[in-house]
């Protein structure tokens, strides 16, 4: 049994904070990009043209049923073979955004489907254009409806950033396991690591319930 030495953590605090910032940075970018891509994919999934719908359905299935690690390896290590050169952070963010897009797309699709058909018919009769219906009627309501799912997916993506350490993105896991193997203080570093992720997940979920409460005020029907 060994002593739990807090000094290791305090000595490396600046590095750890840098790692924390990188983790948050990657999560935020990946989620933002993932949501935008997911929205496009969701529109494709609901398209009436099979030529769009089938390939996009295949894309979603492939992304959802292959491990993120393999996708990341394919992008980062395999990318150069097909002319894609990315640095680790870029590969990490893009990879995570692509991975997230499939999950976000399914969520958006479910949200769109939950909007009563009648509203769209009425809007159509009132002379709204399809773009207007999408932007002013469907998207605002859908976004409120899916907040709980959105928060869930965002937490999952935030946890998935740990995998980025494998392609040497200097985020929390990378920094702390690095410190661990330099100082052999595995117990300390890994405990801090687990705690940091718990804090991240918990604050995302708090933020989510706050947003849910605020947004659903406008949803009284």
């Amino acid at each position: 049994m060994m002593a739990f030495d807090v000094k290791v953590i305090i000595d490396h605090l600046p590095q750890i904070l840098d790692g924390f910032v990188t983790t948050v940075w990657c999560t935020v970018w990946a989620c933002a990009l993932g949501m935008v891509l997911g929205l496009i994919v969701a529109c494709g999934l609901m398209s009436k043209a099979r030529i769009f719908r089938y390939p996009i359905r295949f894309y979603v299935e492939v992304i959802r049923s292959t491990p993120f690690l393999i996708q990341l390896f394919l992008l980062y290590y395999g990318g150069p073979s097909i002319g894609i050169y990315l640095d680790p952070i870029q590969a990490g963010i893009i990879g995570l955004a692509i991975y997230g897009s499939a999950y976000y797309a399914e969520l958006f699709r479910a949200g769109f489907n939950a909007i009563p058909e009648g509203q769209l018919e009425v809007a159509n009769i009132m002379g709204f254009s399809t773009t207007n219906i999408l932007w002013r009627i469907q998207i605002p309501q859908m976004m409120v409806l899916i907040v709980p799912g959105l928060v869930n997916t965002t937490i999952i993506l935030g946890k998935e950033t740990a995998v980025l350490s494998i392609v040497t993105v200097p985020e929390l896991t990378f920094v702390l396991t690095g410190i661990g193997s330099q100082t052999y203080a595995y117990a300390e570093t890994l405990t801090v690591l687990a705690l940091a992720y718990l804090i991240l997940a918990e604050s995302t979920s708090r933020l989510g319930s706050w947003a849910e409460k605020r947004l659903s005020k406008y949803m009284e029907r």
Partner: peptide, 16 residues
């Protein structure tokens, strides 16, 4: 177990 990434859990089980 749901809040900590699986990768971190694996590392904990492997190193700790």
């Amino acid at each position: 177990f749901r809040g900590v990434p699986l990768l971190v859990q694996l590392m904990i089980s492997y190193y700790c």
